[in-house]
């Protein structure tokens, strides 16, 4: 099991925009006092362990960020800040908005849709 090839060119810090968004959201919510960073680290560590149990070793790429987002969703749910059902509804609304938006145009969420 080789960890890396050191000569490979350096990838950007976030390979997908959502990785950066998840990262920023987590930092921002902590700085606004919703949880401390050690509380986050503990939650995230537990999530990483759980992911490893289900999916085998993480390679530190997309699977790492999936665990990160899972930890954030879990923590926010525990704190009563983001209920899974509401998040799911909004997620579907965003998906619908993306599908309904012509290619290249900015995507906006029609807030009227989210209750539906």
């Amino acid at each position: 099991m080789t960890i890396c090839t050191p000569d490979r060119p350096e990838p950007p810090p976030f390979s997908e925009p959502w990785h950066a968004q998840a990262f920023a959201l987590t930092v921002h919510l902590s700085e606004r006092g919703n949880y401390t960073w050690p509380e986050w680290a503990e939650r995230f560590s537990a999530e990483l362990t759980e992911h490893r149990g289900h999916q085998g070793p993480l390679d530190g790429g997309a699977d790492y960020w999936a665990a990160w987002l899972g930890a954030l969703e879990g923590l926010l749910n525990e704190r009563g800040l983001a209920e899974p059902a509401v998040v799911e509804t909004l997620k579907e609304a965003w998906e619908a908005a993306y599908l309904a938006t012509p290619h290249g145009a900015p995507v906006h969420l029609d807030m009227g849709q989210k209750a539906g």
């Binding site: 950066a20 920023a24 959201l25 921002h28 919510l29 799911e88 993306y98």
Partner: peptide, 29 residues
């Protein structure tokens, strides 16, 4: 989309400032 959903909800609740998120991303990117 899951991140977008969280961001939308938390922004509506006044817990998140989208401009602050952009600033954080810019710093680390």
């Amino acid at each position: 989309m899951r991140v977008k959903a969280l961001e939308t909800l938390l922004t509506e609740k006044g817990l998140v400032d989208p401009a602050a998120l952009d600033a954080i991303i810019d710093i680390y990117q």
